[in-house]
């Protein structure tokens, strides 16, 4: 009797756990993301514009834009109207795209080591190491399980969290100049980045 009970619990636990753990783990998600990106970057036959378009697509597949926006605003996300949230998400995405897609020229080879993954509930941390020239750069991906897959919402490079950086700056700007002040600055930045 006791054995059947245990068996049922085990089976139950297994089935309950399956939806999360049967999926490719966070480390696999990061691996396929990095591999896809490097493949595009290394492709000699592709033009810069094609690469940008391709990578922008990947960004939407592997990143959780919503979680990133939400975390960037922190408390101010809760205080924002739905329109403000949408507007912010749009501008923030544009800034990220312009910032990082304009950097693909800087890429000059390198390899990535995948070190370990840590999972807790619907969150995960994946540690990697980027190796290029004489540099070793620890890069940590922070992920959430969302809509059936693991998605990145923060990148921590040598202990510096990207989202934390944005949050500190944006929060300070909202505090001083309100949402409209932040949006104005963001629009200016997007315009400058697109032009330059």
């Amino acid at each position: 009797m006791a054995i059947t009970k245990k068996l049922i619990i085990c089976l139950l636990a297994f089935f309950l756990a399956t939806p999360v753990y049967a999926q490719p783990g966070p480390l696999n998600a990061i691996e396929s993301m990095v591999d896809s990106i490097l493949e595009v970057l290394d492709d000699k036959g592709m033009s810069l514009a094609e690469k940008k378009a391709q990578l922008s697509g990947y960004a939407h597949r592997f990143l959780s834009i919503e979680a990133m926006s939400q975390r960037t605003l922190g408390d101010y996300w809760n205080g924002a109207t739905p329109e403000q949230r949408d507007h912010f998400t749009y501008l923030f995405t544009r800034i990220l795209e312009e910032t990082y897609l304009n950097r693909i020229d800087d890429y000059s080879g390198g390899s990535v080591k995948f070190l370990q993954q840590r999972v807790r509930d619907d969150r995960a941390i994946v540690d990697t190491m980027i190796i290029a020239d004489e540099i070793q750069l620890p890069v940590q991906y922070r992920m959430v399980y969302e809509g059936g897959s693991w998605r990145v919402f923060d990148i921590v490079i040598e202990g510096v969290s990207l989202i934390m950086n944005y949050r500190a700056s944006y929060g300070e700007i909202i505090r001083r100049q309100g949402y409209d002040g932040l949006f104005r600055l963001m629009e200016e930045r997007v315009a400058a980045l697109t032009a330059g």
């Binding site: 202990g159 510096v160 934390m164 700056s169 700007i173 600055l185 963001m186």
Partner: peptide, 21 residues
């Protein structure tokens, strides 16, 4: 080029980096 306010960006990066170290 990228930051809305480079002063704030560098201040936060610095604090985070030191914390990590």
């Amino acid at each position: 080029r990228d930051a809305l306010d480079p002063y704030l960006f560098i201040r936060t990066s610095y604090a985070q980096r030191r914390l990590a170290q």
